[in-house]
Design a protein around this nucleic acid. Structure first.
Ligand SMILES: [Mn+2]
Ligand SMILES: [Mn+2]
Ligand SMILES: [Zn+2]
Ligand SMILES: [Zn+2]
Lengths: 127, 127
DNA sequence: TTATCAATGATAATGGCTATCATTCTGATG
DNA sequence: CATCAGAATGATAGCCATTATCATTGATAA
């Protein structure tokens, strides 16, 4: 079992109390703002440990990893390439078709990552 | 128009003559094996230039970019996490559903990336 | 209390990629 | 040709997210 140290608990709480997709440095900044003095290496290690034990989940976006609550059903992401806004969605048809594709190709599917890129309505309205 | 120097032509040929998803260092190695002495920076710059002009295409996989022929219709990828084998697929249902999802969320879709992870049949048979 | 072992923090190292800059090519132009 | 300008190249330094190292601190159990 994972040892939920104070530091890790704080990290976990921050993630659990939000609906945000955190990157490591951003989370470290948020912790610092709240008065916690946690080394950046500890943040990275804490995130890895929490994820390894299923307490949070993550996905790789471009060059950085994003962390979010694990207490959500599986979903994929829509990202506005203008403002960075991230929306979540679930589409059963897509999920089902992916299973079919994998079966057709003789793959035993273990996961997938789908990211849709676009410009969100807020950004479009700004024009 | 892009200047197709000898170096860039060689890089382009290698990619076009294969069905491979090349990473930059791997391609540099292949070039060296064939007797071409091309600096690694030139390989990176050549790949970027070729892609910028639509002569090759790429997608980001984990921490490295993969380059492939541009002379293929849009497709997504299935990756064996055991042996690294990459298969391609096209699924019109998935493509259509993505458009719907984007529309529902008010996004003007510009692209997507779908990677399915799994264990390929060759790897499964080895057990 | 003591021994053990994990967690932490500061910081060095890693790895893919880009920037810099001096040098080499290329391809008009006179 | 000779010259010149701009692009391409190569060696290498720099960048940046993340991981590794290692000395120190902390928690737990005997
Ligand atoms: Mn999410
Ligand atoms: Mn492909
Ligand atoms: Zn936006
Ligand atoms: Zn395989």
């Amino acid at each position: 079992m994972i040892k939920l140290t104070q530091h890790r608990q704080v990290i976990l709480n921050l993630i659990n109390e939000s609906n945000h997709h955190w990157e490591a440095e951003e989370l470290a900044r948020a912790l610092a703002e709240r008065g916690y003095r946690i080394g950046i290496a500890t943040v990275y290690r804490g995130l890895a440990a929490l994820e390894a034990h299923g307490l949070i989940s993550s996905f790789q976006l471009a060059d950085r990893k994003r962390y979010e609550r694990a207490s959500k059903a599986h979903h994929d992401h829509l990202i506005c390439t203008r403002c960075g806004r991230i929306e979540e969605f679930v589409n059963e048809d897509i999920e089902r078709e992916q299973d079919l594709v994998a079966a057709q190709k003789g793959f035993s599917i273990t996961g997938h990552q789908l990211v849709i890129f676009g410009i969100c309505n807020r950004c479009i309205d700004k024009n």
